[in-house]
Design a protein around this nucleic acid. Sequence first.
RNA 1: GUGAGCGUAGCUCAGCCGGUAGAGCAUCGGUCUGUGGAACCGAGGGUCGUGGGUUCAAAUCCCAUCGCUCACCCCA
Length: 428
Amino acid sequence: MTEKKQIRAIKGTRDILPPDSALWNWFERSAREVFETYGFRDIRLPIFEQTDLFARSIGADTDVVGKEMYTFEDRDDSSISLRPEATASVARAYIEHGMHTLPGNVKLYYMGPMFRRERPQKGRYRQFYQVGAEILGQSDAPAIDAEALEMLMVLFERVGLAQTKLYVNSIGCKDCRPKYVELLREELRNVKDKLGADSQRRIETNPLRVLDSKLPEEQSIIEELPRISDHLCEACRQHFATLQQELSLRGIAYEQNWRLVRGLDYYTRTTFEVTAAGLGSQNAVCGGGRYDGLVELLGGHPTKGIGFAIGTDRVILSLQEGEKRLSMPGLAVFVAWMNSATYPTAVKIARTLRDAGFSVELLPEEMKFKKSLGLADRLGARYVLIIGEDEVASGNFTLKRLSDREQKKFSDSALIEYLQLEGRGSGA
RNA sequence: GUGAGCGUAGCUCAGCCGGUAGAGCAUCGGUCUGUGGAACCGAGGGUCGUGGGUUCAAAUCCCAUCGCUCACCCCA
């Protein structure tokens, strides 16, 4: 009993406290607003799923599934994993609820925590948050991809994310990609001895990932490698070309990056990534792409799909580095009462003000008047409602505005009317 | 999983050629009994990350360990 170990948050998890939480809420609210103008609707998904869902969709051999998932045995011995991302869950839900019968494309967005057991660093946590959107349906029209990217960039623009850069690529389809991968592998074998150990290993396991390498000494070699854009099949080439036209039509600035590959197996054709200012080496705030085979892979009808996931932690980090500040809504009225005789009146008026939607602080115990004013000030209240014996006797309450010390008397109905007008006037 | 840097009060840090733990800010109280932000006075708050070693004596020197941070890796 004497030995008390400090209990702390698990490595890679953290508490998001006020006032930071206000910035988070604001960003998530902005995403909802923008997404809904594009016809997307909220979907709430489980935090954990059968391990198999992720193994089959993301790929059993990927790092995410192979070594980063929080997987455990449930009491009935089934294997469960905390979700490392949500696209797989959206696809699962799409199939499970027969959403292919819904009219048009199914457009869904989600937000919430994801879990990956990596070594934490700037912009990377074991419990991290994503805001994502998915479009599923029969069509793979490039306009769908373009609209998703437009929506994404509109959101970033709206929240004032600095120095955003959109990179797009096409990694081909199940027909042309394997041929390219084989070609790439052969080329890589020729230069194997000039590559680092990681890249050498990937020649056999996943040659595309070599393109991602940051090693300075490998850069000149990688630049000489065959590029996917020269080896797409006709359909994929067309798709990518039309996508670029669609982006220009919408005035979306982008940069083609032939080395952009994704680490999840389900991606096909369009892939993209957005980077922003103020981050460490984890500078991607969003990643996504097309996944036309995913629903079928999970046992549904053949379905096209595209989506993205925004790393909320990183967006917030970037906004904060950019000195983004929110004026907290704060406390509207601090109710200061004088002594036990005035207390019942204070309780009632506080309730009335709260019912009218104002943020109200009511002292829980008697306090010297001077002290309570000081407290109101430090709590950031805009007004102090003074309830002393005079006020109780007359039924008129004194409202003091802290910013300029001005005070007026009101009956309780006139008080609410006045506060509502004031609130509108100040824009607060 | 690998590497590097850093661990003293809630926060920012001082003390570190060994000699019984400090400041500023914050918090709480007082000066101040119906009118705030200031000033002044005072209080609470620390197993100096943890364990071991050297020593008469360790926040300080040595070793180990844990934690945090950043980078590799991976990715949002």
